[in-house]
Design a protein around this nucleic acid. Structure first.
Length: 524
RNA sequence: GGGCGCGUAGCUCAGUUGGCAGAGCAACAGACUUUUAAUCUGUGGGUCGAAGGUUCGAUUCCUUCCGCGCUCACCA
């Protein structure tokens, strides 16, 4: 069922007929003089000049009228109508167009521009060139492709059929470019750090584990860029940022994909107050550039991004929303209060986790307009500097919009002795069963020991920012190829099953290379 | 991982209180030289997600499995 040849004999037989007529159904190139939109934009001048244009694209609709016919071509810029007449292109070419070329095929057209009776700018075809024969029918033109699973699995079809989809990803692209421009203006260097790491760190999350054959060593996919970017601060780079993928081996839901895009940046000589100012400026600049306004609607929530944004210490936010004054409570009392108020918290995981639980339960969803929550408990902030006035709290903030976290930042811990102690505490929590506690990283500590200047750092989830600016409810809608379970294809040899499994149990056989041919042929 | 829901033609969807599986679009044959969801006439197209079970008979009822969505848990 999955082979296009069996699957659509009619299209395949047309392909054979095209070849039989001596036409190459897959030629190598076509010289386009005018993308679709430029024909529409310059219609008046082009009509007057009567000079022929060439345009190429995928046929998305076709309407025949005996000895003439209309069709629409879709290219990256838009859609243009073409008109094909037997008396202009000749009997043979018209027969090929009429009988063998169909919706889904790529077509190049050369001809003059005119306006139809109904007023649509159209190219009158003098020459037609088949550019690629499609062996699969596209979804129906009117209802389009609605099935969510198919839209994600076959994004290529989704992009052809559902026009809003391309807009989302164009906007995402503009968003990232806008961030890069802003960072350029702030004097940053954009860098790339390892994705495969011998140790993972910089966040609290379960990693993906893999294995390097030649070195016979385990490797982890990074869960954050942090520890490498800080090494660069130690190296004197002073202002660095990276936009890249992090990988976290955790649940998938509306706001989580196992592979996601993170912006992290670090600035020497500044603290988290400076970072807050910069994040505010960054969001304002991006929204003004990408959306043109600071008034925004996300999933029916009206948001005003006009600065300044409120900055509320976490314990104060909890007190204001729940009446609970954490500062005056012992750990035991805190656990009791959590229980009374209906929170299921494990007191064994510590005071920091309980406070975080209270925050999530009582506060987070209420933060609709951009709000900085500041001064997080030290236990859940192993890389942040303590507040001088309260060693139980850190100079850390998170930015919330519409109940979602958008940024996480702190005045970076640069005391190597304190950093070692914090790692040791994390290792202890690991022993107590906290699967996400931070690992000991001796090379990172060595870098700290050489001396890191006072530094402020920040991480911003780009996918969530893309969701916000595009008003998307699901992270999958801003990922071109969101993670799904492997699709099963009934016939043919399986895909990567033969490839050596991930390396939980050490090295496997050496021939684990995915064979391009066997993998690809199976894929429909 | 738990709960709820969904899976029928290439696409969008009906439907069967258990009795030969339907429409529109797409496709195919024909008519039509300014249409645009073109129109008109005709035709073909299904492992009803998969495997078991109950039954004279299952796409329908039951069980398990697969996939997707929502949600809870998890998750800076």
């Amino acid at each position: 069922m999955s082979s296009p040849i069996e699957f659509n004999r009619q299209r395949y037989s047309k392909l054979e007929e095209i070849r039989a007529r001596g036409i190459d159904p897959y030629p190598v190139r076509y010289d386009v003089t005018h993308p679709a939109q430029s024909i529409l934009d310059q219609a008046e001048a082009l009509i007057e000049s009567t000079e022929p244009v060439t345009v190429a694209g995928r046929i998305t609709s076709k309407r025949g009228h005996g000895k003439s016919g209309f069709a629409h071509l879709l290219d990256r810029t838009g859609r243009i109508q073409i008109y094909v007449r037997l008396d202009r292109v000749g009997t043979d070419a018209y027969e090929v167009y009429d009988q063998l070329i169909e919706v889904g095929d790529y077509l190049g057209v050369k001809g003059a521009v005119f306006t139809t009776r109904t007023g649509e700018t159209t190219v009158m075809a003098d020459e037609l060139t088949l550019l690629s024969k499609s062996l699969r029918a596209l979804p129906e033109k009117w209802h389009g492709l609605r099935d969510i699973e198919t839209r994600y699995r076959q994004r290529y079809v989704d992009l052809i059929i559902n026009p809003g989809v391309k807009e989302v990803f164009l906007k995402r692209s503009r968003l990232i470019r806008s961030i890069q421009r802003f960072m350029d203006g702030e004097g940053f260097i954009e860098v790339e750090t390892p994705i495969l790491q011998p140790l993972y760190g910089g966040a609290l999350a379960r990693p993906f584990k893999t294995h390097h054959q030649a070195l016979d060593m385990p490797l982890f996919m990074r869960i954050a860029d942090e520890l490498y970017l800080k090494r660069l601060i130690v190296g004197g780079m002073e202002r660095v940022y990276e936009i890249g993928h992090d990988f976290r081996n955790e649940g998938i839901d509306r706001t989580h994909n196992p592979e996601f895009t993170m912006l992290e940046f670090y600035i020497a000589y500044v603290d988290y107050e400076y970072i807050m100012d910069l994040v505010e400026r960054l969001f304002v600049a991006v929204f003004e550039e990408v959306n043109g306004t600071l008034e925004h609607t996300y999933q029916d929530h009206a948001i005003d991004l006009s600065p300044p944004w409120p900055r509320i210490p976490m314990l104060e936010a909890i007190r204001a929303n729940s009446g609970i004054d954490v500062a005056g409570l012992s750990n035991g009392e805190l656990a009791a209060v959590c229980g009374e108020r209906g929170l299921d918290v494990d007191a064994g995981l510590g005071r920091g986790r309980m406070i975080d639980g209270l925050f999530e339960h009582f506060v987070q969803d209420r933060l609709v307009n951009p709000t900085f929550i500041t001064d997080y408990p030290v236990e859940i902030s192993p890389l942040a500097k303590r507040r001088q006035d309260d060693p139980n709290l850190t100079e850390r903030f998170e930015l919330f919009i519409c109940g979602s976290e958008f940024a996480n930042a702190f005045t970076e811990l640069n005391d190597p002795v304190d950093q070692r102690r914090r790692f040791e505490e994390q290792v202890e929590m690991q022993r107590k069963g906290d699967g996400e506690a931070h690992a000991m990283d001796e090379d990172f500590l060595r870098a700290m020991e050489y001396g890191m200047p006072p530094t402020g750092g920040c991480g911003i989830g780009i996918d969530r920012l893309a969701m916000l600016v595009t008003d998307s409810a699901n992270i999958k809608d801003v990922l071109l190829f969101p993670h799904l379970r492997r699709e099963s294809f009934e016939d043919g040899p399986g895909g990567p099953d033969g490839v050596e499994d991930d390396a939980e149990d050490g090295p496997g056989e050496a021939d684990g290379r995915p064979d391009r041919a066997s993998g690809a042929q199976d894929a429909e």
